[in-house]
Deep mutational scan, measured.
Amino acid sequence: TVKFKYKGEEKQVDISKIKKVWRVGKMISFTYDEGGGKTGRGAVSEKDAPKELLQ
């Protein structure tokens, strides 16, 4: 599970739902399947990112 803040809201998403991951400076950005055909997005700092996300 990845915990992150998006627009001031605390969120979390299961690693299995993450589609795409990329690095922006010291942040790790990602998109994930929100269900219902929607794609969500989020970002975590490199130090807070789970190891599975960095692979």
Rank of each mutant, 00 (worst) to 15 (best):
D33I: 07
V44K: 01
E34N: 08
S16I: 12
E34C: 10
V24H: 15
L53N: 01
K20A: 11
G42K: 01
G42I: 03
V13D: 00
E9S: 08
V21H: 04
Q55N: 13
A43D: 08
I28K: 00
V21K: 03
R41E: 08
V13C: 07
K17E: 06
K26E: 12
Q55C: 12
A49G: 02
E10G: 05
V2F: 13
V2Y: 02
E52N: 07
P50E: 02
I18K: 00
I18T: 02
K17M: 14
K17C: 11
W22P: 00
W22H: 04
P50W: 04
L54C: 06
V24M: 10
R23P: 03
V21F: 08
M27P: 00
V24G: 04
E46T: 12
K47F: 11
L53W: 08
Q55V: 13
K51Y: 14
G36E: 13
A49I: 05
Y32W: 09
I28L: 10
Q55W: 12
G8M: 04
Q55P: 06
T1Q: 12
S45T: 12
F4V: 03
V21M: 06
K3S: 09
K3L: 09
K5Y: 15
Y32C: 01
F4P: 01
I15K: 02
G36A: 11
K5V: 12
K38N: 09
R41A: 06
T1R: 08
I18Q: 00
D33T: 06
A49P: 02
E10F: 13
K20I: 07
D48W: 11
S29V: 15
S16M: 11
E52T: 08
R41T: 09
G42V: 03
W22G: 02
G25T: 02
Q55F: 12
F4N: 00
L54P: 02
I28D: 00
G42N: 02
G35C: 04
V21R: 03
R23A: 05
E34W: 06
T39I: 15
A49T: 03
S29D: 03
G35W: 04
K5I: 15
G40R: 07
K17P: 00
K26L: 10
V24W: 14
G37R: 04
A43S: 14
P50R: 03
K5T: 14
K17W: 08
G35K: 05
G42L: 02
S29I: 15
R23W: 12
D33P: 02
S45R: 14
V24T: 13
K51F: 15
G37W: 04
K19F: 14
S45G: 07
I15Y: 06
P50F: 03
S29H: 15
E9C: 08
D14E: 14
K17G: 03
K20S: 11
I28N: 00
K38I: 12
M27N: 07
I15E: 02
D48V: 09
K11Q: 06
K51V: 14
V44W: 02
G42R: 01
T31L: 13
K5N: 11
K11T: 06
T1E: 06
K47H: 10
G25L: 03
E9R: 12
K7H: 12
T39P: 05
G35I: 06
K38M: 09
K3R: 14
I28E: 00
K17D: 10
F4D: 00
T1G: 05
E34H: 05
V2I: 14
M27C: 13
K47C: 09
K19S: 06
K38P: 03
G36F: 12
Y6P: 02
Q55H: 11
S29G: 12
I18H: 00
R41Q: 08
R41L: 12
K51T: 12
Y6H: 09
I18F: 03
T39S: 07
D14G: 07
P50A: 04
F4A: 02
S45H: 15
L54D: 02
E46N: 06
E52I: 11
E10L: 14
F30D: 00
V24E: 11
Y6M: 06
K17Q: 13
K5C: 14
G40W: 05
A49H: 01
E46L: 14
I18L: 07
L54T: 09
G40C: 07
G35H: 05
K7C: 13
V24L: 08
V13R: 01
W22F: 06
E9G: 08
D33Y: 07
V2T: 02
I28Q: 00
T1I: 15
D48E: 12
G25Y: 04
G42S: 03
V44T: 04
E46K: 09
A49S: 06
V44Y: 02
K7M: 13
G35N: 05
V21S: 07
L53C: 03
S45A: 14
K5E: 06
K47P: 05
Y32T: 01
D14I: 06
